[in-house]
Amino acid sequence: MFNALVQFIREQYRSDDFIPLHAPVFAGHERDYVTDTIESTFVSSVGAFVDRFERDMAAYTGSPRAVATVNGTAALHISLKLAGVLPGELVVTQPLTFVATCNAIAYCSAEPLFIDVDRHTLGLSPTALDAWLTEHAEVGDDGLCRTRSDGKVIRACVPMHTFGHPADLDGLVSVCARWQIVLVEDAAESLGSFYKGRHTGTFGALGTLSFNGNKIITTGGGGMILANEALGTHAKHLTTTAKKPHPYEYVHDEVGYNYRLPNLNAALGCAQLEQLEAFIANKRELAARYAEHFQGSDLKFFTEPADCRSNYWLNAVICEGHEQRDALLKATNDRGVMSRPIWALMNHLPIYAHCRKGELSNAEWLEARVVNLPSSVLPDLVV
């Protein structure tokens, strides 16, 4: 079975060489736009491509405002600050995520509260969240959600759209509204993914994107905050060292951050964004081929949730158990085809092992079974 999978993947990528998990494709105006920034000398945080990238991303996602940042973690850090997260407070998130989600919470001197995921989305479960809050929390007269045991404020909720598959946003929006918790979407992996016709990252008070080298489009590094006009304006201020506009004076009116995206990177992003829909069509075709290949197999190919359009950033299969998962990982990697397990659960990491958590049976079940397979844009479909 594994030999046939390796052969299938090699046929898709037409290569006997090493096949990475997800490589970028530069098939558009990347070289021209980057050259333009060099010739203009505006290669740092001020330049026309930064403004254009923000405008284009706002238009594509349907967000009132988009603010470019140096990476996705910085975008999430600022979003949590704008959501009002204070030191010592709790922020709900899922244990099945990349560590950056929890690190951004820690940057605010807050603490993750781990709630289980749904197996059909791989994202934070609104049912599990509501159940935990009903048992352990209450909303006070001041409108704040607090734990009953020690009065800790539960300020925000950060679901992550795993591998580009949208979480149950209707459910999460409803639960967060009922419990007076600010919804901040970690949409780092889901650019181009839509939930019931609406782009991920636009359902909460704020949303964040990532353009790391392994994402569906890349700026080398980079991220984006999606927000309304008021929060977006504040985000732009905070990420540019909180400097007030002035022809020559240096006046900073609050603690700010040097989180600006350089123009050089934004130029790359503008060229990549022009190709995004073609990339998604390509990757969805690859996902369809994987799904067909795995029909009747012991390995279950993970498909997008109902009423969603996923970007299929990383393709995933669910193994029968831990032993089959390890055998698949070894067989593919030994043959030069890169595969990776899903992340270790955040509550299993020493740095977050002390954090509060609910019952996590779905996350634990998935941790033992999920494997990502090569998901780069197919060469025969490159625009």
Results as ranks from 00 to 15, higher is better:
35 T>R: 15
247 P>K: 06
81 K>S: 12
109 S>M: 00
333 N>K: 11
25 V>P: 01
36 D>P: 08
311 N>S: 02
13 Y>R: 06
189 E>Q: 15
11 E>C: 06
383 V>P: 14
79 S>R: 14
221 G>W: 14
9 I>C: 13
129 L>I: 11
20 P>V: 11
190 S>V: 07
62 G>I: 12
146 R>P: 03
249 E>C: 02
34 V>A: 13
148 R>V: 05
364 E>S: 14
277 E>I: 01
45 S>L: 08
220 G>Q: 11
171 G>F: 06
283 K>N: 14
329 L>K: 14
339 S>M: 08
282 N>T: 06
91 V>I: 00
257 Y>L: 13
290 Y>I: 09
340 R>G: 03
39 E>Q: 13
365 W>E: 08
337 V>H: 01
243 K>Q: 05
198 R>V: 09
253 D>W: 03
338 M>V: 02
261 L>V: 01
371 V>Q: 02
342 I>N: 12
360 L>T: 07
176 C>N: 13
87 P>W: 05
155 R>N: 13
244 K>V: 02
206 L>C: 15
242 A>C: 07
44 S>L: 12
127 T>F: 09
6 V>A: 15
286 L>R: 10
81 K>M: 13
113 L>T: 04
47 G>W: 07
127 T>I: 11
45 S>K: 15
237 H>K: 06
54 E>Y: 05
350 P>S: 09
266 A>M: 08
355 C>F: 02
78 I>G: 03
183 L>D: 10
313 W>F: 02
6 V>N: 06
247 P>I: 04
78 I>N: 00
200 T>P: 01
346 M>T: 10
258 N>A: 14
201 G>Q: 04
213 G>D: 09
220 G>P: 10
57 M>E: 06
61 T>R: 10
321 G>A: 07
254 E>F: 11
314 L>C: 00
197 G>R: 02
25 V>E: 12
154 I>E: 05
193 S>V: 03
42 F>P: 00
249 E>P: 01
13 Y>Q: 07
119 R>M: 00
344 A>W: 08
356 R>A: 10
62 G>T: 13
64 P>A: 05
187 A>H: 09
91 V>F: 05
